[in-house]
């Protein structure tokens, strides 16, 4: 198992795209953190960039990588290696490479130019988003045999969670504004991994007061230890469910 993961990680590093991604993240973080002297404010600015860039890069890169590894997978499958091991190695290799890139690219500038105490929640969210969108990418890649279709599906997933989901929610809030839906809105928002990451970081930064009444509900729902545990459960759910589903699909695939 370790050998295959090691091989995949080396292959990704050789790819140079991840290196480029790390440098890009580093430059963004460094410049954003350098402009603002208030740590909390600078982390908030960085949060918005991270929530946009990390899922997009993770999902697109992973999808393309899985498609390009078809030959590698076929070669290993004619050897005495179980299918689940190959797929799991693929997932662990990709998610660890992307998480590592994020930790270096964003975590390091936070450590240098900001305070790790304040930025810690951001680093955790970024790592979770890298892993979640790798899992989603692998599901997209296994659902379609056609590369272009698969990449399209992956980008749609990113678009859905970044823009469409919030759009639908806003529409619903306006339509049902006469009803007491605040709690429901908070719960629905928490089901989206990107929104949940945002809420998680905002709560840790203690700026939920900026969000007014909704912020108060968020604090009461997620601020407690129970809320944090719940957030982790939801994030884990987004890692496990797409991955396990893709694994089941992969085990039944004809190559």
């Amino acid at each position: 198992m370790n050998r295959i993961i090691r091989f995949i990680v080396f292959d990704i590093i050789k790819n140079k795209i991840v290196l480029f991604y790390t440098i890009l993240l580093f430059i963004i973080s460094w410049s954003v953190l350098g402009i603002e002297t208030n740590y909390t404010k600078s982390i908030l600015s960085l949060l918005n960039v991270v929530l946009l860039v990390v899922p997009l890069v993770s999902v697109v890169f992973s999808t393309i990588y899985v498609y390009n590894s078809n030959q590698f997978i076929e070669l290993l499958l004619s050897q005495p290696v179980p299918r689940s091991k190959i797929w799991l190695s693929m997932f662990l290799g990709l998610s660890s490479a992307l998480s590592f890139a994020f930790i270096i690219g964003c975590g390091l500038p936070i450590l240098i130019y900001s305070s790790i105490e304040i930025g810690f929640s951001l680093v955790i969210s970024g790592v979770f988003l890298s892993i979640i969108f790798t899992a989603i990418a692998m599901l997209a890649a296994i659902l379609s045999k056609d590369k272009a279709k698969g990449i399209g599906l992956a980008i749609f997933c990113w678009l859905f969670f970044t823009i469409i989901y919030d759009g639908i929610m806003l529409l619903a809030i306006f339509q049902f504004s006469d009803y007491p839906i605040e709690k429901l809105v908070a719960i629905v928002a928490a089901l989206n991994p990107i929104d949940l990451s945002r809420i998680f970081v905002l709560l840790q930064l203690d700026v939920s007061a900026m969000l007014g009444y909704t912020g108060a509900i968020f604090t009461s729902l997620f601020g407690s230890t129970k809320g944090i545990v719940l957030s982790f459960v939801v994030l884990l759910f987004w890692v496990i469910v797409p991955f396990v589903y893709s694994l089941v699909k992969f085990k039944r695939k004809d190559l």
Binding site: S69, N70, Q71, E74, P80, V81
Partner: peptide, 20 residues
């Protein structure tokens, strides 16, 4: 089962290998 493949050597019609 996958261990049985230890006993098989396979030469494919068109060998597809990782390119780089």
């Amino acid at each position: 089962n996958y261990t049985y493949r230890e006993n098989i050597g396979y030469m494919p019609q068109i060998g597809r290998y990782p390119e780089n």
